[in-house]
Simulated scan of single mutants.
Amino acid sequence: MDVTEEAVREICTDAVFERGETYLAEGRIREIHRVDDTVTAIVSGSRQYDVRVDLATEGFDSWCGCPYDGPGACKHVVAVLLRCVEDVPLDEGDRLDAALDGTEPDDLRAFLRDVLATDVTLRERFFARFGEPVTRSVDELRAAIDRRFEETNPDYYVVFEPIDFAEWFNLANEYREEGRNAAAAGVYRALVESLDDNMDRVDGAYDHFSQAFSRALDGYVACVVATDRKANAVTDAVSFLEERAASGTQYLTDQFERAATELRTELDEGRSAE
């Protein structure tokens, strides 16, 4: 988990690295916390921006709520990582574990239930982790993602800043870890549809939204393949991708076509194996 200046330089431009150094020196990191390898922070720029980095992954798997649309990481992420080079924040994971170990099961259950009763995002992940039936359809998931676009800049149609899609990617990952690939495919499809249909609203942070789309599309294809190459799900997915390639956002056409080709190949291999 060693964070070095050289590793930080590799994920950003020289100009951004210098701005990150300046932000750190100016004391713009207002809060910083760590649990295990995940660091979260609030960095002051033109406003307060949330930053999240994973110190254990290649490239640090960073996210920031700022509108940066250039190559590599933004200055807020760089400032946080440089702070970790100097002094990694104290890991609160042990404290969390100790609190959990010292809590009576009934008290913990009551607390967890109260939290899950009011937090839909966590409730969905809880259901996914512990094998409960899927509670929201693709259309319902899609509507929730669409609302995030609408809420990001309610006074204007265009969206200038990144949107954090982590709750849906995390939900899909929960399903995948439990081997529930069809459910995960539904989450990825909702992301693909919403990103495709809302891409014309994006007027900044294009790289952020493009990366989210590619990640969702790759996840969708992988999960459809994992269900059953002989199943109708593959045929339906190919039709969906071909329709999107023909009618969706023009600069995403190549990605839709590539994904459809990959699934058609899987379908043909499945038929030849019969």
Rank of each mutant, 00 (worst) to 15 (best):
G65E: 03
L241S: 08
Y175L: 03
A79C: 08
E26K: 15
E21Y: 03
E31G: 03
P89Y: 05
Y23P: 02
D36H: 11
E92P: 01
I163M: 08
Y206P: 01
E21W: 04
N173K: 14
V8C: 05
R9H: 10
P154S: 04
Y157S: 09
D101S: 13
A182S: 10
D97Q: 10
D2E: 15
F209Y: 14
D87G: 07
I163P: 00
V8Q: 02
A15I: 09
R189K: 13
H208Y: 08
V159P: 00
T13C: 02
R83Q: 13
D69T: 10
P162G: 08
D69G: 15
W63K: 14
V53W: 03
E86K: 14
D94A: 13
A15C: 03
D197I: 04
G102V: 06
R30Y: 06
R189T: 09
D36N: 13
A98M: 11
S239E: 12
V39D: 01
L267K: 13
S137T: 15
D268V: 12
L112S: 12
P67K: 07
T121Q: 08
L263V: 00
V88C: 07
V78W: 01
A245G: 11
L116I: 08
Y251A: 11
E151R: 14
D106Y: 01
A237F: 05
G102D: 10
Y23I: 05
L217A: 06
V78P: 03
G45W: 01
L171P: 00
E140K: 08
S214V: 10
Y68M: 07
R109Y: 12
E167F: 06
E178N: 04
D36P: 00
I29E: 05
F165P: 00
V158P: 00
S214F: 15
D119K: 09
R83E: 10
L217W: 02
D164M: 03
Y157W: 15
T118V: 15
A99V: 09
V158R: 15
A237M: 06
R95L: 15
A73V: 07
F165S: 00
F169Y: 09
A56N: 12
I145G: 02
D146Y: 11
R28F: 05
R34Y: 08
L241C: 06
G179F: 08
D203P: 02
N198H: 11
D114Q: 15
D94W: 09
P154V: 00
R180Q: 09
D97L: 15
T40K: 09
E269L: 14
R189M: 02
G219S: 06
R95S: 12
L24K: 01
N153R: 12
R109P: 06
G70N: 05
A237S: 12
L108F: 07
A183N: 12
D61S: 13
V221A: 10
V85E: 02
C74V: 03
V192L: 03
W168D: 13
T57S: 15
T253V: 11
M1W: 10
